[in-house]
Design a binder for these strands. Structure first.
Lengths: 143, 143
DNA sequence: ACAGTTGTAACAACTATTGTTACGATTAGA
DNA sequence: TCTAATCGTAACAATAGTTGTTACAACTGT
């Protein structure tokens, strides 16, 4: 797959806003964030748009416009971020329906679905363990 | 991402070969497997080529050619299959290096890498729990 | 020698990601 | 009321991965 950096950029973005707000600023602009992420401001705005729909960020428009967190960093887990920006499931079943006359073709779908459900649960459990507060702490420790 | 059905098709393919061999046949052809999966034989051959490189399948060429398992179904986990066919990591870091002068830009990479390592470990642990023997049992139960 | 199959290259269609330009909509403040 | 800054979004190109397809050389049991 074309490697997926959306979760990285989303976590970067929200962490950046959180730190900026703790330093006393009200809002952060997509241009400031893009400079830190090293990308185009539109990429940041697109991503923040999805994060806003998920209730993780808010935007103020007009003059003195910009972005702020909708919840504290400690109240946002990486699972929240993942759910906000990753649309589909990790694994898919067959593109075309397998032969229903074949024993394997008939039973493989449900069998794999059960496995994929377990795997996605494990992935979500793991992502839920880390909050953006944890991420910020690690980031500052690395400095 | 364009949804990834490679693991599904690979598990289907190996399970099909395993069942076919248990019914007394020596080898299975990509055409037979493709009929069950409902796709083109070349798709199966490509996938089996990667599975062969990983030591999970073997091919016989010439007349009476076809595919066989290199190990018993019970000795192949879904993690083995996953490792054989999925090249990259689940999540990627930034496409372009983030600003190293920024605290967040500087520390976010290592922080996210640690998280991604944990997540991939959890995913692998979960995939390792299921063997193709388990898959075949579920498949036959569903019938 | 023949027939059947593997192994692989080449190509098209489709989708997702990332980056970019452009421009209307919005609003605090002069 | 005007202005300047920023959001919100559409549109497009470049790149890459997946899936399906055709084609053909290489191989080997009979």
């Amino acid at each position: 797959m074309s490697a997926n950096s959306r979760l990285t950029i989303a976590a970067h973005t929200l962490t950046w806003i959180g730190l900026y707000q703790r330093r006393g600023h009200e809002v952060a602009t997509s241009e400031q964030i893009a400079a830190s992420v090293n990308t185009n401001p539109v990429v940041i705005r697109r991503l923040l748009g999805e994060l806003r729909k998920a209730g993780l960020a808010d935007a103020r428009r007009g003059a003195r416009a910009g972005w702020m967190l909708a919840r504290d960093l400690a109240a946002i887990t990486l699972l929240d971020v993942y759910r906000a920006i990753e649309p589909g499931p990790l694994f898919a079943l067959h593109p075309a329906t397998p032969d229903p006359e074949c024993v394997v073709g008939h039973g493989i779908g449900p069998a794999m679905t059960a496995v994929y459900d377990s795997v996605e649960s494990a992935l979500c459990r793991e992502l839920a363990k880390t909050t953006l507060e944890d991420v910020l702490r690690d980031v500052l420790k690395a400095g």
